[in-house]
Design a protein around this nucleic acid. Sequence first.
DNA 1: CTCACGAATGAAAGAGCGTTCATATGTTCA
DNA 2: TGAACATATGAACGCTCTTTCATTCGTGAG
Lengths: 129, 129
Amino acid sequence: MVRMGHGAAPANAVPRPHTRLDADSAARVAGTLQALATPSRLLILSRLREGPCAATELAAEVGMEQSACSHQLRLLRNLGLVVGTRQGRSVVYALYDNHVAALLDQAVYHIEHLRLGLSDVDAEDLQEG
Amino acid sequence: MVRMGHGAAPANAVPRPHTRLDADSAARVAGTLQALATPSRLLILSRLREGPCAATELAAEVGMEQSACSHQLRLLRNLGLVVGTRQGRSVVYALYDNHVAALLDQAVYHIEHLRLGLSDVDAEDLQEG
DNA sequence: CTCACGAATGAAAGAGCGTTCATATGTTCA
DNA sequence: TGAACATATGAACGCTCTTTCATTCGTGAG
């Protein structure tokens, strides 16, 4: 393993009771969540979820151009979701820490379960008539 | 209480080990996550996290125009994240179920923890030289 | 040094999204 | 039925974001 960030996270810890978000927190959280709100970045993170990977191979595995992938990796880096380490002429990327992995897992988990209740309906019908 | 969806979710269940996302799943998950990737919708959901609320009051509480709020509520409804129930001349909104609440909580939890490791640095510095 | 490879950057095009304004639908009450 | 309130809808502007193309920077080998 290369290095997984500060790694001091119980990954499955139960979130606190909850507090209503203020405008500031909302903006911050939204900013980071946008990173997970795109198929390309989601694919990148999901691949990285399985282990570190060099930039070019990563691009190949998720089926995108080197440049596009690099742009997204930069974004993910700036958000602190992934880290890149130079290794020879390649840069190996990895998830920053367990929070990222957990967030990913849980997002997929909850969303897949949510989708069990709906197809692609316009949800006009969901308003229990 | 109005109606909270199918409500058959252990909210804090541990996500499965994880599987690499295919392009399709990535698109679906990304689609739903986009709902959480905006301050306005995040504020709406966060408010709803505390309990049901009528549309107009909701708009007021999160500080947005009625129209804008309604548009976002429609989006959230179509994604199956919230449900609206007519009550007299108002429509009371609520989170669809515990998956939504859990997703929200965990997103906030993990993201706030992630941010502890960074300020607003360009993360160029994070690449452990 | 020079060449080849890997990765990052910048500019620009194209698409998608959120907000606003104006208006329509639906509901209650007199 | 008509007025007032609550919510939803449609069109459009502006903005942001993702991708592509071309180029540059960095690294290792001959």
